[in-house]
Amino acid sequence: MGILGLIGKGLTKTKEALSKKLGELFGGRDYICAEDLDELEAMLLQADLGQSTVEKILSELKSRMEADGKADRKVLEGIISGIIGEILSASSKTEIQIHKPHVIVLLGVNGTGKTTSAGKMAYSLSRQGKKVVLAAADTFRAAAIEQLEVWAERAGAELVKHKQGSDPSAVAFDAAKAAINRDADYLIVDTAGRLHTKSNLMEELKKVGKVIGGQVESAPHETLLVIDATTGQNGLVQAREFNKAIPLTGIILTKLDGTAKGGIVVAVSEELGIPVKYVGVGESAEDLRPFDAKEFVEGLFKVGEVDNAVS
């Protein structure tokens, strides 16, 4: 199974859940009519897609139904995947230029999987023969450094760390220096989880960004917001606030191997134009995968597969 196939595995849950719902909506008929729209709206919202995207889908559908008051499944799915696909692919167009060292900063609220994602990323880059330095800039959470240490060992990457409670900017500074001195290809900076409402912690994050920029030209080159697929509408607020502190270049959507649908990334892409770069689909080192917008959408609504998966 290729890489894309494996993403498919993670996304199956999303696909099954939403498509099963669509099946219920049609309930044996081959069309839906105006009375079904409320139910459809609820279903789309249930995927955490967010009000604005859902409204877009509904109004498009309504205009298509004007002629005979009906829409068949193909039309409905065409509209849904068209709109979602457009949002996701529009935001993913920007190409990231790879620098040396290429500095990636991971950030997000508490418990979304930043440390694990940093570890997985280091692992995968090391396996590609890249030289990776990991920076343990989460100096707040108890044992976060030890956790990253385990990952660094697994990945065969170098870890730059200070004591717990020390200044994360200082860690970032040393790590940037180390990455330059050791001629590393990548520097991955794991930051502490913070709620976007804590202005002092957001300031701290800005400082980390600045310090890195002072060491490596145009760094950080990628700032990735780690969002848990179970996150609801607050994910959009999170993205907004983090984007204000440090302009985000992408999203890592984690824990997509559960029953959560991760639809919030569509809302984020739509409003902020931030593309989803990776998805986390499991606990092992290989389970961080590049995100493919087209496949994400296809996976959501492929009719044939859906019916098989549901029964």
């Binding site: 919202l45 249930q46 995927a47 955490d48 609220v109 418990g111 848990d228 697929a229 179970t230 996150t231 609801g232 509408q233 607050n234 994910g235 999170q238 559960g258 029953t259 959560a260 649908k261 639809g263 919030i264």
Partner: peptide, 12 residues
């Protein structure tokens, strides 16, 4: 349970 959880909270 994380207060930020979305629709999936019911399944969990």
């Amino acid at each position: 349970v994380d207060a930020m959880t979305g629709q999936d909270a019911v399944n969990v």
